[in-house]
Simulated assay, not measured.
Amino acid sequence: MAMRSSVGSVAAGRSTKDAIRDAAIRLFSAKGFDQTSLREVADAVGITKASLYYHYASKLDLLLAVIQPIFDELRGNVDVAEGLEHTARNVRHVLAAQLGVLLRNRTAGAMCVRDSVTILNAISDLYPDIIDNNRRLCTWLAGPDPDDAAMLRASASLEMLTSVFWSRELAPGANDELIETVLLNAALGVLAGE
């Protein structure tokens, strides 16, 4: 069997590592994390499994490469939000920033939702961080001195944004602008108690 070269198989301008990550997102989303083998990912990129292991030591490392940047970006949004005054304009801005991250990463996000138990077990070290970021953002969104109802509305408004993960399946003709408008307005409505 002839050896495949990662240089010739990866599109110009993209690194092998990026190509592996992109193929993993597509395959994990289509087949599920557990059902996708590293051999399939390597084949999708046009490299050997040994080349894949050069870039990612394990399937878990590859999964973390897929989801860690998303969590980092979401955490960054929370950090920014906590430095802002709680105004209607800033609330809209923060929710739009969160939705932007989810929209850009909706394929990986859909994979995370579908395989949530498997993925939460695989990333259990990150799990407290995820919960803390959600709590921090809910607290900010709920406003100064929030009561229980305000906290629940804040949590529900963030959940509205995760509908983006199902947007391709539920509304395949919807463009990103429509998705963003509808979900942002829904989240703001829930937050306002409407």
Rank of each mutant, 00 (worst) to 15 (best):
Y54C: 02
Y54W: 12
Y56L: 01
Y56I: 08
Y56A: 00
S58N: 07
S58M: 09
S58D: 15
L60R: 15
L60N: 09
L60C: 01
L60Q: 14
L62E: 01
L64M: 10
V66P: 03
V66N: 05
V66A: 03
I67K: 03
Q68K: 11
F71T: 05
F71G: 07
F71H: 10
F71S: 09
E73H: 11
E73Q: 15
E73R: 11
L74D: 13
L74Y: 00
G76P: 03
G76I: 07
G76Q: 10
V78G: 03
D79P: 11
D79R: 14
V80Q: 11
A81I: 06
E82N: 10
E82T: 12
L84F: 04
E85L: 06
H86Q: 08
H86M: 10
T87Y: 10
T87Q: 01
T87C: 06
R89E: 15
N90D: 14
V91H: 01
R92D: 11
H93F: 12
H93Y: 13
A97M: 09
Q98I: 05
L99N: 05
G100P: 01
G100D: 13
G100L: 08
G100T: 06
G100V: 11
G100A: 10
V101H: 02
L102K: 10
L102E: 09
L102F: 07
R104Q: 12
